[in-house]
Write a protein that binds this DNA or RNA. Structure first.
Length: 571
DNA sequence: GCCGTTTTCGGCCCGACTGTTTTCAGTCG
């Protein structure tokens, strides 16, 4: 079974135990394990095969290791099946409804026999919820609304979508008289590939009407909560936005707190506790006399627990606190380190703009070089080039290059990796290229072994420089194909092939955690936009964010090199 | 259920808002 499936099993266990009123810390253990497993770069199955002790993974102890082993060897988890025998199948689904937690779900089942979303809807419509302790007619209204939203399938949003709404909202709130400072926090600030909601922090003058204005924002569909320090709305697109108003003296503590991640915060607070301190969103306090020590600046929080500043992108409790403690935090790559873009498409295949138009755009951006990398013939829908077509196209690139000053155009291609691992174009034409990207665009549903063999065979071709979007996933749309990344990264290292972090916001492929493993295995990376228009060349930042989340430094990335060094490297 | 250079037992982050309550439990982040 894939990691995702195993993580889902532990989430299901946690949900049922939660409803059953189990020790909340035991519940949390299962949830933590599920999260950890989803973040792994390697399948648990292959980890077991190579003899690794799963208990070395933080958050996985004896009990969960045994369950993983059972799931992998039998495909089932006995414990979950036992739990499911006690609890109606639809019950855990109710937890997904906003405003319903384990206690209410339990009461609904015990007292009204509600065990599914449909039955809950009927009970609420019939006005039967108000008979329960702690519930009233407002609860019924909220439940019906939650069901409607749930059915509409509102979930997470791509980071790039978050950027669009965040920018517009910040512009709007900035205009409110008395607003002194605004910062987005949360997973948006950590640049996570998807965001569940948008958190905005504010400092305001006394009497500022920021909350009144916020809930009147033009795209507000629903006001979820409105208070003096915290308000929440849902926008028409379904995105929830929270605004929090804070005092200047505690702003840093709040910024840290609301940036998260939750796991990072727990670890920081745990550490504070050991030092006799208490950290909350209001500041750093002495545990004994509750006296306030600091908290105006975000740095204060780290200083209080004896650590240097940790960049938001690293705050996932993936070892950043230990690294900070040992002075081993990476010097994360920045957008300004990028000197060129090594994947883009033109009108020769499925791009919107010509070679010259792409070149003009990157001149504005100040790049030293770009590679033009159109598709090969296997990608029919994109009008991929055959050998002859590519030969003509390479000449065209040379012609345009002769007319363009200030930026060097590299001749490239994104050649398809066919089902058997051979390449879609002959070697002699690939040799004409400065950069050859290889990529999978078909037959996604192979078995892991077959897919791994296919990709590694392609990497062995000495003409291949970069493996493009190595897992093929589309965020929120398509799962990655099954492939043993550890073996692929090893092959990439052995054959000197660079691994791409595709910056296109729907891809971000490699993922953050995968890029980190690639780096740790010694492989080099390239961050490329895969732009299909001139405007999309600006998407580079999303690739850089992903790289930063993967602990990547400028020296790990080949398109931070000056042109001459890049050439040397590619040869 | 996990974890440990104070611990192998006894901890496990902390506060705002809501709705239904007369002082708080539940949910959320």
């Amino acid at each position: 079974m894939e990691n995702k499936g195993i993580a889902d099993i532990f989430t299901a266990i946690a949900d049922i135990l939660d409803i059953e009123g189990e020790n909340p810390f035991r519940v949390r253990s299962y949830r933590n394990a599920a999260r950890t497993i989803e973040d792994l770069s390697q399948s648990l199955e292959s980890m077991i095969k190579t003899g690794m002790n799963l208990e070395e993974i933080p958050g996985i102890g004896k009990s969960i290791r045994e369950k993983i082993e059972e799931i992998i060897s039998t495909g089932k988890c006995h414990f979950l099946e036992e739990l499911r025998a006690q609890v109606p199948a639809g019950l855990t689904e109710l937890l997904k409804l906003e405003g319903l937690g384990p206690k209410k779900v339990k009461a609904l089942q015990d007292q009204l026999g509600v065990d599914s979303v449909d039955r809950l809807e009927k009970a609420a419509q019939a006005g039967r919820l108000r008979n329960l302790a702690g519930m009233g007619s407002r609860t019924e209204e909220k439940v019906l609304k939650s069901i409607e939203k749930y059915r509409a399938g509102m979930g997470r949003f791509k980071l790039s979508v978050g950027f669009i709404y965040a920018q517009a909202l910040l512009e709007y709130l900035k205009e409110v008289p008395g607003v002194r400072r605004l910062d987005p926090a949360g997973s948006f600030r950590r640049r996570k590939e998807t965001i569940g909601d948008l958190d905005i922090l504010a400092i305001c003058a006394k009497g500022c009407r920021v909350m009144d204005r916020f809930v009147k924002y033009g795209e507000t569909a629903e006001i979820i909560a409105k208070g003096e320090t915290k308000s929440s709305v849902r926008l028409q697109c379904g995105l929830q936005v929270d605004v929090r108003v804070l005092e200047e003296e505690s702003y840093g503590a709040a910024l840290h707190y609301f940036t998260g991640s939750k796991a990072h915060n727990v670890a920081i607070r745990d550490r504070a506790k050991e030092l006799g301190l208490k950290i909350s969103e209001y500041g750093v306090f002495d545990s004994k006399d509750e006296k306030r020590i600091s908290g105006a600046k975000e740095e204060d929080i780290f200083k209080a627990v004896g650590l240097p500043f940790i960049p938001p992108e690293l705050r996932e409790d993936r070892g950043e606190i230990q690294a900070a403690e040992q002075g081993k935090l990476p010097r994360l790559i920045e957008l300004s380190d990028i000197r060129g873009d090594l994947q883009m498409h033109t009108t020769a295949t499925d791009g919107k703009h010509s070679i010259a138009e792409m070149a003009e755009k990157v001149k504005e951006m100040g790049y030293a070089y770009i590679a033009i990398t159109d598709h090969s013939k296997a990608v029919r829908v994109a009008g991929g080039l055959d050998e002859k077509g590519l030969a003509r196209h390479l000449k065209e690139i040379d012609k345009v290059a002769a007319q363009v000053t200030g930026v060097r155009l590299l001749k490239g291609v994104e050649v398809d990796i066919l089902a058997d691992g051979s390449l879609d174009l002959k070697d002699d034409i690939l040799q004409e290229c400065d950069v050859v990207l290889a990529a999978v665009h078909s037959r996604f549903n192979m078995e892991e072994k077959e897919m791994t063999r296919r990709i590694i065979k392609a990497l062995k071709n000495p003409n291949v420089n970069i493996l493009a979007h190595p897992t093929g996933r589309l965020i929120l749309e398509r799962e990655a194909y099954k492939v043993n990344l550890k073996e692929v990264f090893q092959a990439a290292f052995d054959y000197g092939v660079v691994l791409e972090i595709n910056a296109y916001p729907d891809r971000l492929d490699l993922r953050d955690v995968d890029a980190r493993m690639a780096k740790e295995m010694g492989a080099k990376l390239a961050i490329s936009t895969d732009a299909h228009s001139a405007a999309q060349l600006e998407l580079m930042r999303f690739g850089v964010y992903t790289a930063r989340r993967g602990w990547i430094e400028a020296k790990d990335v080949i398109n931070t090199l000056p042109l001459e060094e890049l050439f040397k490297f590619l040869r």
